[in-house]
């Protein structure tokens, strides 16, 4: 990989975004293990968490190689603090009830599907390959989460109320998925990255269709939208995730596990 200094630094940052989204969401989903609404769903949620963490390993490991300082995926996962995490705020939100988790997953899966599809055309072969592999998994995740949004939205009065609430609570975290910045734009110019703004209309048509079918009301455009996680600004929840996740390697810096 021969990259100029600017591209190297941009790409490192971009790969952290991709890796951190999946690491943090995988962490959240893994919290369900043993606590799902039915045994079959425990197994499904574990599969999704395994896929997400697996994807994050691929992106973070490539990030480490691009950076060229010898940092591994574990170094990046366990030895960065909140300001250096670049994941979307959406994925760090606490699980809530099963409906909340499914809505969060659905909103992310639809975005992830479009992004992985587009990244397959990246000029950076390693990145295109990782995206291609992830895409197969994401297709299944989206099938799972959208089927659940349909059932819960159009199930009972209680389930409808719960997922409508979840949707209203999470909506403010959706817009930053489609925000671009200089880092991304420079990589778009080089044919490496995908312009996030280009994903919005595809996402909306996919998401709106399922939400309508699920008899859910799409939240209005007027409300507050969070922004800034790609620059390291997060909600209060990320710190606790990191405290939990990073505890052992931080407490015993010399130990191998």
């Amino acid at each position: 990989m021969k990259l100029d200094k600017q591209t190297q630094s941009d790409l490192f940052d971009y790969l952290l975004r991709l890796g951190d989204d999946r690491l943090i969401l995988g962490h959240r989903v893994s919290e369900w293990c043993g606590h799902g609404p039915i045994l079959e769903e425990d197994i499904a949620l574990s599969n999704i968490a395994l896929d997400l963490i697996g994807q994050s390993i691929n992106f973070l490991s490539l990030a480490g190689k691009v950076e060229g300082q010898g940092r591994t995926e574990d170094d990046l996962a366990y030895h960065r603090d909140a300001l250096d995490f670049k994941n979307l705020m959406l994925v760090e939100q606490p699980n809530g009830d099963f409906g909340f988790t499914m809505v969060r997953q659905f909103l992310f899966d639809a975005y992830s599907l479009l992004l992985m599809e587009a990244l397959q055309a990246s000029e950076l072969k390693e990145l295109a390959a990782i995206a291609g592999k992830a895409l197969k998994e994401v297709r299944y995740h989206l099938r799972h989460s959208s089927q659940w949004v349909l059932r819960l939205g159009d199930g009972t009065e209680e389930s409808h109320r719960r997922v409508q609430n979840a949707l209203d609570d999470l909506w403010m975290y959706t817009r930053e998925m489609f925000e671009s910045d200089e880092v991304e734009q420079r990589l778009v110019q080089k044919g490496i990255a995908v312009d996030s703004t280009s994903l919005k209309s595809g996402w909306e048509s996919m998401v709106f269709q399922i939400l309508k079918q699920a008899t859910l009301e799409i939240p209005g455009e007027q409300g507050y939208y969070s922004s800034g996680s790609r620059q390291g600004i997060h909600t209060e929840h990320l710190g606790y995730i990191l405290a939990d996740m990073q505890f052992l390697p931080r407490a015993y810096p010399d130990a191998k596990w």
Binding site: G36, P37, I38, E41, D97, F98, G99, R151, L152, G155, T156, E158, S159, R162
Partner: peptide, 9 residues
């Protein structure tokens, strides 16, 4: 906590 999910499905 899973009862409403099973019921909705």
């Amino acid at each position: 906590e899973g009862a409403w999910v099973r019921e909705a499905a």
